[in-house]
Amino acid sequence: MEAFLVSTGAVLLGEIGDKTMLLALVLATRFRKPAAVIAGIFVATLFNHALAGLVGGWLRAVIPAGYLPWLVAASFIAVGLWTLVPDKLDEDEAKPRGNGGAFLVTVVAFFLAEMGDKTQIVTTLLAARFDSLPAVVAGTTTGMLLADVPVVFIGMALAAKLPMKAIRITAATLFIALGVTTVIFRHSLGA
């Protein structure tokens, strides 16, 4: 039980203000299908954190620590620039026909967003600390849901009031700022 509770608390605290909270907000406003977005967050987190517990040590050995901040910064800037490009699909095509589109997009987006994220690293460390990988993964997944599910519902409430262009520009600005901040912070450390 300790592994579950510690894992839940660590990820809940670590997730507050994280980029995946922004992602939950954007997906909720984009698809307006909270059940599909929440299910996607659950599945992506479960798989991502299970992998983190199993192969986290291997990833740290493969990717030199000096390169990771640069890769993260470049990814943030790329996502920010990509976010500025509006969808070119017709309105009917842009809306998923069922929950499958919103679910699949959320699974892929959350899985990728969690790669190398602090909650994935915390999951790796917790899995090394506690003997019960299932308790750690259940706890970290619960912490992620406790942090992000309210954001999905906030996004739903805001979707009717905020224009998508403003949301897209705000999200792009935040991602680019995260990337630039990562580069500046990395440079200030002299590495």
Rank of each mutant, 00 (worst) to 15 (best):
M1F: 04
L13W: 05
A73V: 00
E15N: 06
V43D: 02
A127E: 03
A191T: 13
V183W: 12
A135S: 12
L125P: 00
L25H: 04
L145E: 05
F103M: 09
K161F: 00
A36C: 11
M1G: 10
V149P: 04
G14Q: 12
L46W: 10
G101S: 11
P69R: 12
W82S: 11
A36E: 12
V43G: 02
R97L: 14
H49I: 00
D18C: 08
L178A: 03
A35E: 10
E91T: 10
T182M: 13
A73N: 04
G139I: 02
I184A: 11
P163W: 09
G53M: 12
A166D: 11
L125M: 14
R186H: 13
L46G: 02
L46C: 03
L104C: 03
L162N: 08
T119Y: 08
T8D: 03
V180N: 01
H49N: 15
V183I: 15
L84H: 09
G100T: 14
P163D: 15
R60F: 11
F110R: 08
T123Y: 04
F4K: 06
A36T: 10
D148I: 01
V43T: 11
L89I: 00
V107F: 09
T141R: 11
M115E: 00
V11L: 10
T181D: 08
A177T: 12
G14N: 09
D131P: 06
L126N: 06
I121S: 01
G57F: 08
T181M: 12
P163Y: 09
V152N: 06
G98F: 10
V6W: 06
L22E: 07
L162P: 09
K118L: 04
A10Q: 06
P150H: 07
Q120A: 04
D148G: 01
H187E: 08
A94E: 14
V151E: 09
A10M: 10
V72E: 01
F111I: 01
T124R: 09
K33T: 05
I169A: 13
L84C: 14
V72D: 00
L158P: 02
L59F: 15
Y67N: 08
P64Y: 10
I41G: 04
V183S: 01
I184V: 15
F130M: 07
L25C: 04
S188T: 11
G101Y: 13
S188E: 14
T106L: 08
I63N: 02
V180F: 00
V122K: 04
T124V: 02
V79I: 15
R30A: 12
T124A: 12
A52W: 05
F130N: 05
G100S: 14
A28H: 06
L54D: 10
E114P: 01
V180K: 06
A74F: 11
V136M: 08
L104N: 00
I169C: 07
K165D: 14
A113N: 01
V43E: 02
P34S: 09
D131C: 00
M1Y: 06
P163E: 15
F103W: 09
T141D: 01
M144H: 03
F130W: 05
V43Y: 04
I41A: 11
A138E: 03
